[in-house]
């Protein structure tokens, strides 16, 4: 067992342990933090495999983006600091069963494929090649998915702006929060006259 294997098993143990804690913790903020450590562990595995670009993207997207958003939404939730009630027995049993089924299913698939260890050629792809492949229109180019995803993101962005934007009425009320009352006549005589005239106008009757 060489150093590389030791590092691999250490990272895997860390990953599995924090993943297990993420689903069993009863404090929601702690769950989020354990999820974060799991994702960092995945990134560490990518770095271990020498696919640095994917590792960095994993950290930027999942750790820096998604988990931070999750933590923000936890911060804004009521009573998020309280310990959650213990889940029902039935639910626990079924979730364990689901996890075991998933494990068996994927193990079955992987064992059927039969990976062969080949350490002859180091897996090394330069970033510029990834970029070229992403925008190439040849048979293995990814330009169509790339554009579709960018359209999706653009639509999401426009949607955010629409939700956050103030309608013209809201803008008006933001400037003048209290609707201005029509000025009341101060003089009592005037008051009487106005009420009388109001009564006499045919529209009011």
């Amino acid at each position: 067992m060489n150093a590389s294997a030791i590092i691999f098993y250490a990272i895997s143990a860390f990953l599995l342990g924090s993943g297990l804690l993420a689903v069993t913790s009863r404090k929601i903020f702690r769950s989020a933090i354990w999820l974060l450590f799991t994702l960092v562990g995945v990134a560490a595995l990518y770095f271990w495999m020498d696919v640095n670009f994917i590792g960095a993207i994993q950290i930027i997207v999942y750790v820096g983006g998604i988990v931070v958003l999750i933590i923000f939404s936890i911060f804004l939730t009521q009573q998020s600091g309280k310990e959650m009630p213990r889940p029902m027995m039935k639910r626990t049993v079924f979730s364990i069963l689901a996890a075991l089924f998933g494990l068996g299913f994927s193990y079955n698939l992987i064992s059927n494929y039969g990976f062969t260890a080949n350490a002859t050629t180091p897996f090394n792809v330069s970033v510029s090649e990834i970029g070229t492949q992403m925008l190439s229109t040849t048979s293995h180019g990814f330009v169509l998915p790339f554009e579709v995803v960018s359209m999706l993101l653009l639509a999401a962005m426009v949607g955010c702006i629409v939700i956050a934007m103030k309608t013209p009425e809201q803008k008006q009320s933001a400037i003048r929060p209290v609707p201005v009352q029509p000025e009341m006549p101060v003089n009592i005589e005037e008051l009487i006259i106005t009420t009388i005239t109001k009564k006499e106008t045919p529209e009011e009757v």
Binding site: L36, V40, I59, V68, I71
Partner: peptide, 8 residues
Amino acid sequence: AISSLSVI
């Protein structure tokens, strides 16, 4: 990438 971790 790593500097986005510091917020955590």
